[in-house]
Structures are given as C-alpha cells and as structure tokens.
Design a protein around this nucleic acid. Sequence first.
DNA 1: AGAGATATAGACCAAATGGTCTTTAAATCA
DNA 2: TGATTTAAAGACCATTTGGTCTATATCTCT
Lengths: 198, 198
Amino acid sequence: MPLPRGRPRSFDAEAAVERAMGVFWSRGYHATALPDLLRATKLSRGSLYAAFGDKHSLFLRALDRYIADAVTRMDIELDPRKEPVDGLRAYLAGYVDRTSGAHGRLGCLVIATTMELAGRDADVNRRIASFFKVMEARVADALSRAKAAGKLADGVDPANAARILVCFVEGLRVISKTAPTGTITQAAADALLDRFIR
Amino acid sequence: MPLPRGRPRSFDAEAAVERAMGVFWSRGYHATALPDLLRATKLSRGSLYAAFGDKHSLFLRALDRYIADAVTRMDIELDPRKEPVDGLRAYLAGYVDRTSGAHGRLGCLVIATTMELAGRDADVNRRIASFFKVMEARVADALSRAKAAGKLADGVDPANAARILVCFVEGLRVISKTAPTGTITQAAADALLDRFIR
DNA sequence: AGAGATATAGACCAAATGGTCTTTAAATCA
DNA sequence: TGATTTAAAGACCATTTGGTCTATATCTCT
C-alpha cells in the first residue's frame, strides 16, 4: 500500500473526545451546543464533522470513553488477586471521594445520561444497561469471593448485597450533586459495608 | 371589593401544571419544547405565558408539584403514629413498585432535574437539596423511633442508616431506568432492611 | 344589550440550533 | 516545485427555539 501523501492529521482524536466528554459531563447532552464543543475540542466545524460524523456520534464516543474509564478503575479496585473486602472498601472509598467537596458537584455522566436520554435513545440505553450489569457483576464477584473466604456475615447473599451497594453508590452521586457532604457519607459507607462483613 | 366582571378563567391552572409535569418528567427540561407543553396543557401560547410567565417558571411549578406529591406520600408511609418498621417497609415497597415493570422506565423527575439543572440553576438546586434533606430526616426519624422501641439491630445509627436507605432508593430509580427489574429489587430491599432491624 | 374580562389562534420575531460547503492556508510527499 | 491531503475560518442554510402581540370569539356580569 502506498504511503499517504498530503498533510497529515494534526489533531489527536482521542484527546478531542476527552475534551468533548468534559463538556457533555458538565452540561448534559441537550444543553451542549456545537460552539461549546468547538471551543472545547479546539476543532473547526468541518474537522469535527469529518472526524466524528455528528453531535450524537461524538456523544456516544464520549460516553464510551467515560464508561471505559469507570470499568478500568473498577477492575483495579476489585482485582480478583486482592483481598475482596479491601477491594470493596476501595470501591466505596472512590465514590465517597468523588461525591465529596468540589468533586461532588461535578456529578456523573452515566447517571445524567441515563435520566436524560436512556428512555428515548436505544444506543445510549444499550451502553448504560450493560455498564450497570458489569458493575453489579464485578461487585457480586468480589462479594462471592469474600463469602468463600468466610468474611461475610451470616445470611448475606452476594447478588442482593451487590445490588444494594451499586444502588447506594449511584444514589450517593445523585444526592451529593446538590449538596456534597463528605464525612457523613464516609460514615454511611462504612456502616453499610460493616453490615455485610463479619 | 367588587366582583370580577368579565369572562371567568375557564381552565384549571393546577391541572395544567400537572400535565406540564408529565411532559417534563418524560422528556426532561431542555428536550421539552413549547409546542409539547401547549399540546399537553391544551393551552394557547398566550394563556400559558399569561398564567405562568415563562417555561422556567412553569417548570418550577411542576417540580414543586412533584416534590409535594412525594412528600405527601412519605408522610403517609412514615406516619409517626404507625409502627416505624412497617412504615419503612412501606416506604421501600413504594420504590420497588415504582422501579418495576413499565413504571420503572418512567424514571424520577427529581433525579433527572438534579442531573440536568441543579448544577447551574439555583432555584432548582434549593428545592431539590431541601427535598433530599426532608426525605432523609423523615427516614431518620422513623429509624429513631424504631430504635427507641428496641427494633433496631445493635450498633445501627439512625442517621447513617437513613442516608443509606435514601441513597439506595435513589440509586434504584437510576439503574431501573434502563432495565426495570422487579423481583431482584424486592429481594435487595428486603435484604437491606433486614440488616438494620432486629 | 352592552361593558368588561378572558380565552384562542396564529402571525410574527430575533436568536440559536445542528449541519453543510467553500475558500484558503498549511504540511507532507514525490 | 508541484501534487496531494488536511485543517481552519466562516459564510451559509433550513429549522427550531422561547417569547410577544394582535385579532377575534366567548363568557359573565350589570
């Protein structure tokens, strides 16, 4: 195959996606106008449309990126080679951190997108439903390993507890969007986990 | 004071607010266009603007209505004259119901608004922050009464448990927006409450 | 009947929307 | 140098946005 001839692509598409992600994250899909995206990505209209097709496709790329980051983080926190209870503690601590202080007000792109688009956008719905399933499965897995190691309190079912933990952290992100708390949240997270472990 | 003379107001403003609420609820604030509201309220542009000022004010009215309904429901479920544990069970059952089957996909106007507007709209933020505070306080109150009656498990702090329960139900509404579940959710709610009561 | 108040329908508006296209400058190769 | 490819700038487009205003019909009172 012959080498490409002319001027080489001079911008980093992945970096542009990341910047676009930031805008969607802080404003939501509908409230993000094209000029916002152009400013953030430092791309011209032409380049943006040539590279990503349209606003919706770019949004999907940004959402995928956000989800991939979240899954990566989870894979580290809940790594099967670590102590499962430590992993769960780290997982919860991450959410406490992300919902405290200035971070808290940022909110979560997945939740915002769920509420704004999931009901009417099949592409979005697929991605998010699968993300929540993955998350719940990872947590359930850690809980199962904890149970096998005799670390769980009597009568705790990993599947139920996983759903509880996932709902708890997602709920945290919602209520801390209006009023980030910090210490109370940390105490609640500790109290919740303490109910499950021995 | 003299009686009003001319043609009397012929539409029910509160009913219009309720219909508008339905539209905002299912589409979100930005995705709701004026024609949507006109269709739903069956009002003309002129009447709608005369009665409510503008889109934002109408939205605030709808949000207030939604919150008032939620608080009313809570006051019934967590009525201090009832057994507190029964009340908490009813409270959770309400959320299980609202996140199951077809209801689930409807989602929650408060959460959607939190994610879409709370960060940039002070009027909205105030209302929602206060709502979450009220909700948490009511649940904490029920838990305190349960504790006084010796119905709580050892070492359960009502304030922590209240935050946990509130986050759980709000998280439920988020994850069930993409995939309403039902039975699993009911089991999780039962399992969670069982961890707190004796 | 007539005065007074209100509703509707819809024309109208400026601004903003997402999206296309053309022109021009720049960068790389042969 | 000249061919080729790309990016940026911004003109341009139809449509939609939230919002105003006027004309007309309708209703209730005196």
